[in-house]
Write a protein that binds this DNA or RNA. Sequence first.
DNA 1: CGGAGTGTTGACCCCGTTCAAATTTGGTGG
DNA 2: CCACCAAATTTGAACGGGGTCAACACTCCG
Lengths: 266, 266
Amino acid sequence: MPTNKSRPTSANPRLAVLSYFSAFAPLPQAEAEALRAMLGRLTTFAAGNEIIAAGTLLDAPKILASGWVCRTARLPDGRRQILDFYFPGDLVGFSSRRGAEAAASYISLTRSDCAQAEELLRNAQEDQPHWPVLAHICRTLEQQVEIRLLQQIVRNGRQTAYERVGHLILEFYGRLQLSGLVQDNSFGLPLTQEILAEAVGLSTVHMNRTIQHLRKAKLIRTEGGTVTIQDKAALLSLAGRLGPQNQPGTLQSEIWEAQTALTRQP
Amino acid sequence: MPTNKSRPTSANPRLAVLSYFSAFAPLPQAEAEALRAMLGRLTTFAAGNEIIAAGTLLDAPKILASGWVCRTARLPDGRRQILDFYFPGDLVGFSSRRGAEAAASYISLTRSDCAQAEELLRNAQEDQPHWPVLAHICRTLEQQVEIRLLQQIVRNGRQTAYERVGHLILEFYGRLQLSGLVQDNSFGLPLTQEILAEAVGLSTVHMNRTIQHLRKAKLIRTEGGTVTIQDKAALLSLAGRLGPQNQPGTLQSEIWEAQTALTRQP
DNA sequence: CGGAGTGTTGACCCCGTTCAAATTTGGTGG
DNA sequence: CCACCAAATTTGAACGGGGTCAACACTCCG
């Protein structure tokens, strides 16, 4: 499942961002303009670059316009854990808490383009923001980050390898869909199996076998950097033990509902 | 390793809070007074109560004055994951992000007393806070929560059972120390092994065996709800592969430094 | 054409789970 | 103080998920 040949990150990177933002709240003309303006000048990072170092003051957030980014932690003996992924449209290094510092470093997994978003931060911190909808979207995205971290804990702590990988793929699917990067149930996955393994706490070898398992069970298909969801219902039920037999609304569901909410988007 | 007979939560619960807060920044007279005032009326929750339900708007944060609280997530099939713990002095349900909702529910693990802290929240959200030091402490505590979530991911994702338990105990130790709840390297641990297992993603049985292992290796001692750190250096090196052979300051350390920082407090 | 990075496979083994049955602890009421 | 009960800890045995190590295949690229 190779490398940087993701499908075209959508001809115009700005489209993905606009699509993503609008998925959370429809943007008024003026705010869409403002966003487009911010996306005017992009900085490019090569794959494997540290975009924001751990400990840095988070006063220069970015909008990821194209490419994949993650946060990572490393144990002194070299073991590495990927904490969270960022896709086109996500805010990288954004925190509405004043004086916040990066708790872990942000690293580009592929070549990626970022727009400076200090204005977004300033706007979001104001009491009467100039761009209320953008402010709301920023807060929503921030909340999503927390939800993902909690999901990541549950995934690594309480799910089997098979479930973890299914869940992660669904997360990718649901999020990429919002930015219009999913077509016909398939999306580009520009990550090595090693990276995936580091995200869900598995060995590379077992990640490989687990993916094969998912393929053989006809839940997904993979071909040269593209993943296709073959059986979404089965994947959903695998990932969260959700499905027809589940009663939503109970405490049972908890954060899994948030997940479903994401996945349910058009 | 039984139950609710933690050592006296410090005769006066407010002491623990004041000690904890002061550990992050010395409180000016006026702000100490304000904090004390907030701690005037306490609400008591019995063990096992839901203090804040998932999805609730976080507009009524609390200061935990005594007892232990956690955040949990549950998979539909019943598997449960504990996400984070809260001790006396911690803010429960505090988010400086406007409109934030609880991503998971807060549950009391023991009988616990909470003070309403809406004033703290309002103060922290103001541009020129009335109580600048308290505002700073709130933000610091919020940052600590994020750091702990990331540590939890690393722990569950990349550490062995033995390391996980050692790391968790060190986290308890370091944090409780700040509120003066550690004496002679020992502290009350009012949790069942089942709860501990749910935090680090192990089965109850294996949690039991891992604790025995730590005991036999003379890293900790346990007697009736009290844990004593016998060999801190060994525990530290176990938990983060830290120790003499480690070069701090490198990317290597990352969030482990934050951990150390906590643990290093007087 | 060679080499590096990635994906794949096989063999072996150990960490941690599961199931079941003690045993201990703590609390309760007589 | 003792009898009793539920909850918690502990132990044993058997199993299996996932790790580790090592070799091999494939692709991409210079």
